[in-house]
Amino acid sequence: MKSILFKYISLALVLTFFSPEAKEFQGKAIYYSKSKLELGRWGARMSEAQKKQIKARLKNRLEKEYVLVFNKEASFFKEEEKIDAISGATDSWGKNFSQGDLYKNIKKNQLVQSQEFYGKKFLVKDNLQKIAWKIEKESKKIGQYLCFKATAAIPTKELTWYNFSWSDLRKSETKKDSITKEGKKMIEGMTFVEAWYTPQIPVSNGPGEYWGLPGLILEVSAGDRVMLCSKVIINPKEKIEIEIPEKGEEITKSAYQKTIREKMVEMRNNRGRRRR
């Protein structure tokens, strides 16, 4: 029954989507993300009070708010900047390794992302990350929208190319299978992604780098991070402009990651020399 209903909804929305009246179709979605605080072996030595204090200090990095504006072909995704409740300032250090403003064009297979690393601006231009989604049978409602589940395994480095990890320098990726606590089969070097999309909003887009499903992605879980849509506005009164980042040195994703790794290693080595 669900599959018949899904096919009916999809067909009706596709016809609406491509009708002459749908040319100006556009929308805005608000997302909230939460990440788990993983303290590893250091956490075992800390008291609950110390863990709570660290979590409070890292709140701006663990909990974020984003805005996605979209039309039938493209989208612009941006983090809403927050003031730290403790310091009264923005998280300048975190900006060096967080995702910048992101423009995706589905029709042109184009990604344009602005990144800033220690005051230097970069304009990352590349193809969209290909995602081999598997459509699952489960469905649920998120707000007023009927959503369907899809899963995929994506190379972790493709989801974190704007970030930096010392551990990546100390070990090479292997291809061993492992079982997570949730019982999901994983491949080392890959991230399991679970997404929920709604055909009721017929755009093949979503938050961050996620796209490629027959409907807007309203929820996505990847690694220790969950991103959930809290509000959607379809065809607002004021026309939405899809921005394309323009400032910065043009570079590809792989070249950008190589640049920041080299810079971080250089900084580490310089600190080591000063201590001698």
Rank of each mutant, 00 (worst) to 15 (best):
I54E: 05
V124H: 11
P20W: 05
V67P: 00
E65P: 03
I86T: 10
R276Q: 11
E138H: 14
I135M: 13
Y103L: 00
K157R: 14
I179D: 04
Q129L: 12
I142S: 02
L37I: 13
I201T: 07
N269S: 04
I217D: 00
S98K: 10
I242R: 12
M227N: 07
E243L: 13
G100W: 07
K253A: 01
T160W: 09
L58C: 03
N163M: 06
W196M: 01
A195Q: 09
V67E: 11
S230P: 02
G27S: 04
E194M: 04
Q257G: 05
M227G: 00
S139I: 06
K108H: 13
Q200C: 04
E182S: 11
G272N: 13
L218A: 04
D224A: 08
T174K: 13
E21A: 05
K52R: 09
K107D: 01
Y8F: 09
K107L: 06
K28Q: 07
N270R: 15
P245N: 08
L5S: 10
G94V: 05
Y145M: 02
R268V: 11
R170K: 12
F70H: 05
K149M: 07
S75Y: 07
R275Q: 12
M186Q: 14
A56N: 11
G248W: 14
I233A: 08
A85E: 15
R61H: 04
A255D: 15
R271E: 08
Y197M: 01
I9V: 15
Y210R: 03
R261E: 06
V69W: 08
L39I: 12
N71C: 01
S178F: 14
E209R: 09
A22H: 11
Q110D: 04
P155E: 04
E80H: 06
N105L: 02
M190G: 01
K64S: 01
S33Y: 12
I244H: 11
Y103C: 00
E250P: 06
I251Q: 07
Y256C: 00
D101K: 13
F70P: 01
F148I: 05
E73S: 07
E249D: 06
M190D: 05
N109H: 12
P207D: 03
F76Y: 15
Y8G: 00
E182C: 01
T16I: 07
G248E: 09
W196T: 02
K2W: 09
N96Q: 06
I131W: 14
E63M: 01
E238F: 13
E238D: 14
R225P: 00
T198V: 08
A12C: 05
